[in-house]
């Protein structure tokens, strides 16, 4: 599944770039994130409990940041695995200044497997969009806090 979109975060690219790679900010913004542990430079392990209304899934996974070009872009690699399925995604986040804020454009591809891939077809797209939106909304709220 290809996903792309953009979201504007109310901070300059430098700060946005840093926040988007800050474990604490990530942990607070990733939907359902329960634990995020740094395991190496730019590598994290996480546990998530993703809840969308009645649907719920526990995932354990990894996040890796690569191809860093401060403050313009970086590559994000995410893997998660749980009883209801797994996902593996890779995407490039491109940051461009926009009137003191930053437009974050994401463009990537997500593979989904297991039960969620087999029975979730109808709403995978909408759900992915929703989770991304939630992430950026939380990130935006965080950006607005004074650092």
């Amino acid at each position: 599944m290809k996903i792309s979109g953009s979201y504007t975060l109310p901070a300059a690219p430098e700060r946005t770039y840093a926040l988007l790679q800050d474990p604490e900010a990530l942990a607070a913004s990733m939907p359902g994130c329960r634990e995020l542990v740094r395991t190496a430079e730019d590598e994290y392990e996480m546990k998530m409990n993703v809840v969308i209304s009645s649907i719920q899934g526990l995932f354990a996974g990894k996040i890796r940041v690569a191809d860093k070009e401060f403050p313009a872009r970086f590559r994000l690699l995410v893997e998660g695995d749980g009883k209801i399925g797994f996902l593996k995604g890779e995407g490039v986040l491109t940051l461009s200044p926009a009137d003191g804020a930053t437009e974050v454009h994401y463009d990537g591809e997500v593979q989904v497997g297991g039960m969620i891939a087999g029975v979730g077809q109808r709403l995978l797209d909408a759900t992915a969009k929703y989770l991304i939106k939630r992430f950026f909304e939380k990130m935006a709220a965080r950006v607005e806090q004074p650092s």
């Binding site: 009645s54 649907i55 719920q56 009883k83 209801i84 039960m115 029975v119």
Partner: peptide, 21 residues
Amino acid sequence: AKPLAGGMSLIPLMKLRLAAP
């Protein structure tokens, strides 16, 4: 807790274990 009304959406999700209240 999860409220159960008719269950027409919730129960199939529970059977697939996409929901596990």
